[in-house]
């Protein structure tokens, strides 16, 4: 079971972005960046399926 979780180990010392008062780990930056990207994608990408078939009720 030792292969579990060791494919891309994140245990060694991290990388940090330092810009004025902002100091953020790359790990957190990736997560927050992905959140913003996902949010924008969710707004822009067309949602499949529902548009065409309307059931009147």
């Amino acid at each position: 079971m030792s292969w579990l979780g060791s494919i891309i180990p994140l245990d060694h010392l991290g990388h940090y972005i330092h810009w004025h008062v902002i100091l953020i780990s790359v790990g957190n930056l990736v997560v927050i960046g992905l959140m913003v990207v996902t949010f924008i994608a969710a707004l822009l990408l067309p949602f499949p399926g529902r548009g065409g078939r309307k059931a009147s009720k």
């Binding site: 902002i22 780990s25 957190n28 997560v31």
Partner: peptide, 26 residues
């Protein structure tokens, strides 16, 4: 401090190593 976890290093939201931490505490 080596792990960038102190208060002045935004440590509250950081995790040891390169893992994302409690980013929601930004």
């Amino acid at each position: 401090a080596n792990q960038h976890l102190t208060g002045t290093q935004w440590g509250m939201m950081n995790e040891t190593g390169q893992y994302p931490g409690q980013a929601w505490l930004w």
